[in-house]
Design a protein around this nucleic acid. Structure first.
Length: 430
RNA sequence: GCGAUUGUGGUGAAGUGGUUAACACAUCUGGCUGUGAACCAGACACGCGUCAGUUCGAUUCUGAUCAAUCGCCCCA
């Protein structure tokens, strides 16, 4: 009886795992250049943190959380996103007493109980940044630029940047009043969810799936008509900076994002491959004013974004399968008998100490079979160890790509490999 | 949450209400006991997603369930 892979989860190994890891490293390095430092937070928090911050009425909280009671009777939820946890950590550790803004980057797995499809998992990885404690359109623009450039640096030829503003508090209060007024006469005929949303968060009625309600929604007032002058100007300033960087964007009125804590500027990055593969948003984020206060800290404006690593990885793989890293070895040891196996074992150890990636088989296989393994493991060199080699302290070193084999003495081995591996790297770069 | 399609080995896949579930690739073994090819001879599904039903008998029929893929929605 085999255990099943749980729905919406995946295993990754070898090449895929390598590239996922490399993605994290690259993004971390880029974030560092903006002055971001790492933060590590728990995988689970008390449920209320998410219901309060992400919002009762959001899709994530209302139907996508992995929540459970622990043995101590605590109501626990596996993080559906990272921002709330970061805010909690800032409050818990009173990090806001430090110089503002706080700039943290994180990478970790998050959980959402959704129906899986291409590029959508129930457990997936997010890399993100949060810049907390600054209310400046420069900060918003910097965050957007970071995300945009990071994707280009990773190898995307171009990125579709969707951007919108949902206004400041004042704008949204005005808008909500207008919406309530608009929906009031229709409310009787609308679905039960919407009746509830009318009270909890009118904005969510705009997302209603019921076809009848959508007809009503179609003519509802738009946020754009209720923006304060300040909100409009703020948004325009951000757009000006993007223009300055010659970053293309499209303003998308429907982009509101599914988390309740956003205000002002929100954005998403998309990419559609040549083959038409569209995994949805590669990442997204926005500005948020009330979140830190909401979880018990001071009132500080912030901005953040997150990428979905699996989606980024999948598209990069499709873009350029050649550049996609594969596991490889510098050297594979080939031996002939018990004696040479032992010799190869210790020689491998010496070479590893010198920094080479070395592997071998401990099974008694014919040389041909060992060469096959070497090729499969993507080894650059095979070092042949046999009776003669042991006697002469000289090994047959075969370049598996050029087929050239030379005899190299034990003393020269490290230099020989160094030189020739370097050469290969140059070839790769060219 | 809604709709559609699919489910046979490590992989790609054919097939049938009833003795050994084609074929190909990969892998392993031997022919070749110091060099990856080719060739030849072998091996490789305790079994056709899972559970139940129909049947003398089911991988093949029916139902349920699970899962995957695609579209919608949402997003990462």
């Amino acid at each position: 009886m085999a255990y099943q892979l749980q729905r919406g989860t995946y295993d990754a190994w070898g090449s895929d795992a390598m590239n996922l890891k490399k993605l994290e490293e690259t993004l971390s390095a880029i974030a560092s250049t903006f002055g971001y430092v790492p933060i590590k937070i728990p995988t689970y928090e008390q449920t209320e943190l998410f219901t309060r911050s992400v919002g009762e009425s959001s899709d994530i909280v209302s139907k996508e959380m992995f929540s459970f009671m622990d043995k101590g009777g605590r109501n626990i939820t596996l993080r559906p996103e990272m921002t709330a946890g970061v805010m909690r950590a800032i409050v818990t550790n009173k990090l806001y007493v430090n110089d503002l803004p706080l700039k943290y980057f994180y990478c970790g797995n998050v959980f959402r109980y959704e129906r899986p499809q291409a590029g959508r998992y129930r457990e997936f990885s997010q890399f993100g940044i949060e810049c907390v404690g600054v209310n400046s359109y420069y900060s918003d623009a910097e965050t957007i630029v970071f995300g945009y450039n990071a994707l280009l640096m990773l190898g995307f030829p171009k990125i579709i940047l969707k951007i919108n503003t949902i206004g400041d508090q004042q704008s949204r209060d005005n808008y909500k009043v207008a919406l309530k007024e608009y929906f009031k006469p229709y409310l009787e005929s609308m679905c039960d969810d919407c009746k509830r949303r009318y009270e909890t968060n009118v904005l969510r009625i705009l997302d209603c799936k019921s076809p009848e309600d959508q007809k009503i929604v179609a003519n509802a007032p738009k946020i754009q008509d209720y923006l304060t002058d300040e909100a409009k100007e703020y948004f325009q300033k951000v757009l000006d900076i993007l223009n300055e960087f010659q970053i293309e964007y499209e303003i998308d009125d429907n982009l509101v994002r599914g988390l309740d804590y956003y205000s002002e500027v929100v954005f998403e990055y998309h990419f559609i491959s040549e083959n038409g593969v569209n995994l949805g948003a590669l990442g997204g984020g926005g500005h948020y004013d009330n979140l830190l206060k909401e979880v018990g800290g001071p009132s500080l404006s912030s901005v953040g974004l997150a990428f979905g690593l699996e989606r980024v990885n999948a598209l990069l793989k499709e873009l350029d399968p050649c550049c996609y890293e594969k596991p490889s070895l510098d050297v594979f040891m080939v031996h002939m008998d018990e004696k040479s196996k032992e010799h190869a074992f210790y020689l491998a150890s010496d070479l590893r100490s010198a920094g080479f990636i070395v592997d071998m088989t401990f099974e008694n296989k014919k040389m041909g079979a060992q060469f096959n393994i070497a090729t499969r493991k993507n080894a650059s060199f095979a070092i042949i160890v046999g009776e003669q080699e042991i006697a002469n302290h000289t090994y047959g070193v075969k370049n598996l790509k050029t087929q050239v084999q030379e005899n190299v003495s034990y003393e020269d081995l490290v230099d020989y490999l160094d030189n020739h591996l370097e050469e290969e790297d140059h070839h790769h770069e060219e």
